[in-house]
C-alpha cells in the first residue's frame, strides 16, 4: 500500500448539509452556524450511534429502558426504540465504549450490537413551536399527556420512517429525529420547509 497525503486525514461527512461556516472537529466536517431564533434545527449526525437487538427473553431487556422511553445514563442517551431494540447515542465516544458496560451473554437468547454512526441521520429540533412544526407531518399525538419528555416512538413522516425522541433541553421542548442516512437531507429539507411559519433556523455545533 502506498502512502498518500490524500487519505492520511480522512474526513467524515454528515448526510445533512446547509449554508454557513464549517470546520473539521474530531475528524468530522461540521457546521458552526449559530442562530438566536427561538426554533432551531441542528445536525447531530456525528454522534456515535449504536443499535442493540436481542431475541426474546434476553436479560438486556431488563437493563435498558422499555419500548417508548428514553433515559440518559451519564453522557449516553439510551432509547427503547422498539420491542427488543435500543439505540445508544453519545458524543465523542467509540461504539465499543458505548456498549462496554452491557452484558450481551445470556443463556437461551442472543443479542447483537451494530455501529450505525455512519448509517443514520440525526437532527435536533428545539423550541416551544417544535411540536406544532412536527404536527405538519407527524400523525402521532405530540401532546404532553401522550408523549411527555423522555418519550420515544417511530412513525412515518413525509414518506420516511423516522424515530422521534422527546429530549427537552433545559426545560425547552426538544426532539431528536433519527432516520436512515440517505433520507437525511430530504427530511431536513422537509422540516425546515414546515418550520418557515415558525422562523426555524439551522444551527451547527456550538463550540
Amino acid at each position: 500500500m502506498a502512502e498518500s497525503s490524500l487519505w492520511a486525514m480522512p474526513i467524515a461527512r454528515s448526510p445533512i448539509d446547509f449554508d454557513g461556516p464549517h470546520q473539521v472537529v474530531d475528524g468530522w466536517e461540521v457546521s458552526t452556524r449559530t442562530s438566536d431564533s427561538a426554533l432551531t434545527i441542528a445536525d447531530e449526525s456525528h454522534l456515535t450511534k449504536v443499535v442493540i437487538r436481542v431475541t426474546d427473553g434476553h436479560s438486556l431487556a431488563g437493563a435498558l429502558p422499555p419500548t417508548g422511553r428514553a433515559v440518559r445514563v451519564a453522557a449516553t442517551l439510551q432509547v427503547g426504540s422498539g420491542p427488543n431494540e435500543w439505540y445508544l447515542f453519545a458524543a465523542g465516544e467509540t461504539p465499543d465504549s458505548l456498549v462496554a458496560e452491557l452484558e450481551f451473554e445470556c443463556v437461551g437468547a442472543f443479542a447483537s450490537w451494530v455501529d450505525i454512526t455512519h448509517g443514520r441521520a440525526l437532527m435536533r429540533i428545539t423550541g416551544v413551536d417544535a411540536p406544532r412544526l412536527l404536527a405538519s407531518h407527524c400523525a402521532v399525538n405530540l401532546a404532553d399527556s401522550v408523549t411527555p419528555n423522555g418519550s420515544a416512538f417511530r412513525t412515518s413522516i413525509a414518506g420516511v420512517n423516522a424515530d422521534f425522541i422527546r429530549d427537552d433541553r433545559e426545560g425547552v421542548l426538544s426532539y431528536l429525529v433519527h432516520c436512515e442516512r440517505s433520507s437525511g437531507q430530504y427530511l431536513f429539507g422537509v422540516l425546515v420547509d414546515a418550520g418557515v411559519e415558525y422562523r426555524i433556523d439551522p444551527v451547527g455545533i456550538a463550540r
Binding site: 419500548t67 417508548g68 422498539g82 420491542p83 400523525a139 402521532v140 401522550v146 416512538f153 417511530r154 412513525t155 412515518s156
Partner: peptide
C-alpha cells in the same frame, strides 16, 4: 400493543 394507536397506513 407496542406503539399505541396508529393510523392503518403505518
Amino acid at each position: 400493543p407496542y406503539c399505541g394507536p396508529r393510523n392503518s397506513t403505518e
